[in-house]
């Protein structure tokens, strides 16, 4: 690893200034689980490394009853152990349950997972389905970007070089909502998804019709996507119809454009979308039934 100067600012403003002063020569470090590897491999050789760990206020999970605010420095482990997230935003808990190892989850942060722009990032599919909004701090002040507009390509995002992600804001889900994230991997643990399916469904309650569906797919295209055509198809259809979900799977396959890599083929990723979209839906619906039973 090349040498660098380590900074540990105590405020977001100081961090922004350091970043602004050093431009491309600086890198932010959150949990470090990606950056340290990139620096070891010589893929990243910053002269300044700015740690966010001593900045107050960005490592908390706050829930107001209307919105959930997750600080960018919140670790995956903290999300995994958050009762409110498991109860109300269960697909986000799904995303971290099998992300790396306990050791990695103790270090790695949600902010890092998002800002790296990796197509395989586990929290991103769920955050897309949750319509999360990313709150950045820059020299000009705050700026918010919907996560659905954040990813421009593998490793490319809308984040400016002198901006720091502070918070992820998620609006509460309407009553009758349920969710699920399925990470499909070759190996059970310590693996990247070959495909990620995140799904939020809203039931109208009485008629058991799907009022709204939000479907985030990772590795189904060069960047994480929302399967909007599938969402349109599902809206207004009977929630528990397997035929409907099978057709939804076909539509999702058609609106995806997964790539072939040494990890797997485009064709196989499509198979997985087709097979797992209905399963994700029914697992979400099962959660809804359980909630309803509990009352």
């Amino acid at each position: 690893m090349k040498g660098f100067t380590y900074h540990e600012p105590n405020s977001i403003g100081d961090a922004v200034n350091l970043l602004n002063d050093n431009g491309a020569r600086a890198s932010l470090i959150a949990g470090g689980t990606d950056l340290v590897i990139k620096m070891k491999q010589g893929k990243s050789e910053p002269e300044h490394v700015i740690s966010l760990q001593s900045i107050p206020g960005i490592n908390e999970i706050k829930y107001s009853g209307e919105e959930l605010r997750i600080g960018s420095m919140v670790t995956h482990r903290a999300i995994e152990q958050s009762k409110i997230i498991r109860d109300k935003f269960s697909l986000l808990a799904d995303a971290v349950d099998n992300l790396g190892s306990v050791q990695v989850r103790n270090l790695a942060t949600i902010g890092g997972n998002i800002c790296n722009g990796a197509p395989s990032a586990d929290t991103v599919g769920p955050l897309m389905a949750l319509d999360a909004v990313l709150l950045f701090e820059g020299p000009e002040g705050e700026r918010s970007i919907p996560i659905t507009e954040f990813f421009h390509g593998p490793g490319k995002t809308a984040q400016a070089a002198n901006e720091i992600l502070k918070e992820i804001v998620i609006h509460d889900l309407p009553p009758g909502s349920c969710s699920r994230y399925i990470k499909y991997t070759r190996r059970k643990a310590m693996d990247l998804p070959l495909l990620g399916i995140a799904l939020v469904l809203v039931s109208d309650g009485a008629e058991d019709v799907c009022k709204e569906a939000r479907i985030g797919l990772t590795l189904a295209a060069p960047t994480p996507i929302r399967a909007t055509k599938t969402e349109e198809y599902v809206a207004g259809k009977p929630l528990r119809s397997s035929a409907m979900w099978d057709e939804a799977g076909n539509i999702a396959v058609n609106e995806s454009s997964p790539r072939t890599s040494f990890r797997t083929t485009s064709a196989y990723r499509k198979k997985i979308i087709q097979a797992l979209l209905p399963r994700a839906a029914f697992e979400a619906i099962r959660r809804l039934s359980e909630q309803q039973r509990k009352g």
Binding site: S101, Q103, L107
Partner: peptide
């Protein structure tokens, strides 16, 4: 492995397990 993929370097920091190969000493 040096990349947090094998766990051989696991130590406890504030009682939590971490990959010491992925953590800057300054932390």
């Amino acid at each position: 492995c040096g990349h947090g993929e094998c766990g051989s370097c696991t130590v406890l920091v504030d009682q939590k397990s971490v990959n010491s190969c992925l953590m800057l000493a300054a932390y």
